[in-house]
Computed example of a mutant assay.
Amino acid sequence: MLEHLPPLNDHNLPYPDTIHPIVVHFVIAMVLFAVVCDALGYFTRNTKLYEVSWWNLFFATISIFIAIIFGQIEAGLAEPYSQVEATLNLHTIIGWSLSGIIAAITGWRYVLRLRDPKVLPLSFLGVGVLLTAIVLFQVYLGDLLVWVYGLHTVPVVEAMREANLQ
């Protein structure tokens, strides 16, 4: 069955480049922009920004599951070495947790929107700040995986292939 799969390229992927970072950057931007729109809407009393925030959260909720699917595929193909495993595992756990957290926050936001789309409780803004902190920590871990540990970069993939040949 494995002979029917496409061969892995110099990034150790069956497709040209990593897809997870592309999709996850949309999620990051949509979540952070939603929090900013909520804060601006709350403090300026511009309730139209609540609608912008809602739709960003809605699409972020869908997009994070796509990001996780590609993240799991690409993590499996990365062949992580021992120094990277703890960071990759933590990044994976937080990623799956964020999918549930974002979905729950979006659900809460949906209920708030149904009750009164022009009112947003201060507690929701507080949760947005907490969500921002978690997302930023997750970004830090993702940066470590690429820029420090070099997952799916050509030099690291070549070194791993050479190590397996010896």
Rank of each mutant, 00 (worst) to 15 (best):
I134E: 03
V154R: 02
P155E: 13
I66R: 01
V35E: 02
W54C: 05
P121Q: 03
G71D: 08
T153S: 08
T44R: 01
F33M: 10
Q138R: 04
L13F: 05
N89E: 15
N46F: 10
L130A: 13
P16T: 03
V52C: 10
V119P: 04
L32D: 08
L122H: 13
S53P: 06
T87F: 15
L40K: 08
T87N: 08
L40F: 09
G107F: 07
A34R: 00
A75F: 02
L112Q: 07
A86P: 07
T18A: 05
I28Q: 00
E79F: 12
Y149V: 02
Y42S: 13
V31M: 03
V119M: 11
A39L: 11
A75H: 06
T92M: 11
L136N: 11
E162T: 01
A103G: 13
F59R: 09
V156L: 00
V23G: 09
G100Y: 11
V154N: 04
S99D: 02
T18Q: 06
G100F: 15
V36E: 11
V154W: 05
G126C: 06
L8I: 04
I101W: 01
E162V: 02
V84D: 09
K48V: 04
I69P: 08
G76Y: 00
N164C: 03
P155W: 15
T61A: 12
D10A: 15
T44L: 02
I73M: 15
L98A: 04
A34K: 00
T153V: 02
R113V: 04
V27F: 08
S99Q: 03
L8F: 05
R115L: 12
L151Y: 00
I62E: 13
Y42W: 09
Q138E: 15
V23T: 09
A67R: 03
R45H: 14
A39T: 12
K118S: 10
L57M: 12
V139A: 06
G128R: 01
V31Y: 07
P7V: 05
G100N: 10
E3G: 09
A34N: 01
Q72L: 07
L114W: 04
W55I: 08
S63C: 12
P16S: 14
Q83S: 09
Y149E: 07
F26A: 11
M160Q: 14
A34W: 00
N12V: 00
A86R: 15
C37D: 15
Y15N: 07
W108N: 10
Y50H: 01
G71P: 02
A34Y: 02
L90V: 05
C37Y: 13
S99T: 00
P6E: 14
L32V: 07
V111K: 02
Q138V: 10
R115N: 07
V157E: 07
L130K: 08
L8H: 10
N9W: 10
D17Y: 14
L90N: 13
M1F: 06
Y15S: 08
L13C: 06
I62F: 15
E51M: 04
I66E: 01
A39G: 05
E51P: 06
H20Y: 03
Y140E: 09
